[in-house]
Design a protein around this nucleic acid. Structure first.
Length: 341
DNA sequence: AATCCGGGGCT
DNA sequence: AGCCCAGGATT
């Protein structure tokens, strides 16, 4: 028996479980096109628990497309600060403007996918949840569930390749009547039952359909190759003058992190690596890169390179520091004060 | 197809 | 420390 042959039974088992087991998330309680769009954008590469407080604050400040479209970009970014992937906020802002201007309003998946920040996953989510279009979402959860249901032991070269490999099956299995709930149920199952490390098969509502359940290596399905992590070092400057700190403003033309401020790179200031011990050494990981960032106390060159500015500490709240730099400046201000007194 | 964006949570 | 997460845009 294949999953396709048992499609109806699979769908109803999943739906029955979802009806009673789903988490009470704010966009489920009070659905609307706008709330669906915001929740899906916020949820990209972000765990639900992390985004919940942001979602509530966002809805309070920008309750609908019109309010969001009329807001300043600065205001929009302030409400996203700390969530990461800031292009999502810019795209959501652009999307709101496009939506307000659009006539007729987008409904079909294809129309949504033409909007900024909306790709295959998000367009399917919006079309199915808000407009009952029978299309399947294929995210990491869905890939994992389908690979296990079919006991697919192949090794995939990338996440993208795995998504591609399971899209057809996902489309075949999606429930025609209530695709939005079906899609959310699949993701809910992946998030709460079909866990990556320790799948909870004993309480799984669709264990009876699962060919992988008896496999000793179920927790290794699907196999997706990871890139080796690259290590790089970026030396940064901690330069103070009076009650101001030297920061670099990433140009609008940058495309990524445009308009945000960061601690200057020593290289951009044309300064050599100081002999002194750095004020702090920060490390962070972004996808497959591990970045080490020593921050040195330096005195700035007299002639500042382009896009470098002295920002008074009192004005820091009025600018957007890129995520980690915001934390570092707050933290190091205290450290630097202690060292100087 | 490869690379970049960023936090927090979890083991 | 390392890995993962309701991905998309750019090159």
């Amino acid at each position: 028996m294949s999953l396709i042959q048992q499609q109806k039974e699979f769908q109803s088992s999943l739906a029955e479980w979802y009806a009673q087991a789903q988490r009470p998330l704010p966009w489920r309680k009070k659905p609307s096109v706008y709330r669906t769009v915001v929740s899906e954008l916020m949820a990209q590469q972000t765990q639900i628990k992390t985004m919940l407080p942001y979602f509530d604050r966002w809805m309070h400040r920008f309750p609908d497309f019109k309010t969001l479209a009329a807001a300043s970009e600065e205001d929009v970014l302030k409400h996203w600060e700390g969530l990461g992937y800031y292009s999502r906020a810019r795209n959501l802002h652009k999307l709101a403007k496009a939506y307000v201007a659009a006539s007729p309003k987008p409904r079909a998946r294809e129309a949504w996918q033409a909007l900024p920040g909306i790709g295959p996953y998000t367009s399917a989510a919006i079309a199915s949840i808000a407009f009952h279009e029978p299309v399947a979402v294929v995210d990491g959860n869905v890939v994992r569930i389908l690979a296990r249901l079919t006991c697919d032991t192949r090794t995939f070269k990338s996440n993208g390749e795995a998504v591609k490999a399971f899209t057809a099956l996902a489309e075949d299995v999606v429930a025609e009547e209530n695709p939005g709930d079906h899609n959310q149920a699949m993701m809910e199952l992946g998030a709460t039952i079909c866990l990556k490390r320790k799948p909870l098969c004993t309480i799984c509502p669709v264990a009876g359909f699962c060919l992988g359940r008896t496999s000793a290596e179920l927790d290794q399905i699907p196999k997706i190759q990871r890139k080796a992590t690259k290590r790089i070092t970026v030396e940064r400057a901690w330069a103070l003058e009076g009650n101001a700190i030297l920061l670099h403003r990433i140009p609008e033309s940058a495309g990524q992190l445009a308009g945000q401020y960061e601690l200057p790179k020593l290289k951009d200031l044309h300064l050599p690596t100081p002999k002194t011990k750095p004020l702090a050494i920060k490390t962070r990981s972004i996808t497959h890169r591990r970045i080490k960032e020593p921050i040195f106390v330096v005195s700035a060159p007299k002639a500042l390179p382009d896009d470098h500015f002295w920002i008074r500490f009192n004005d820091l709240e009025n600018i957007t520091l890129s995520g980690p730099h915001r934390r570092w400046v707050g933290e190091l201000t205290k450290v630097a004060n202690k060292q100087s007194t």
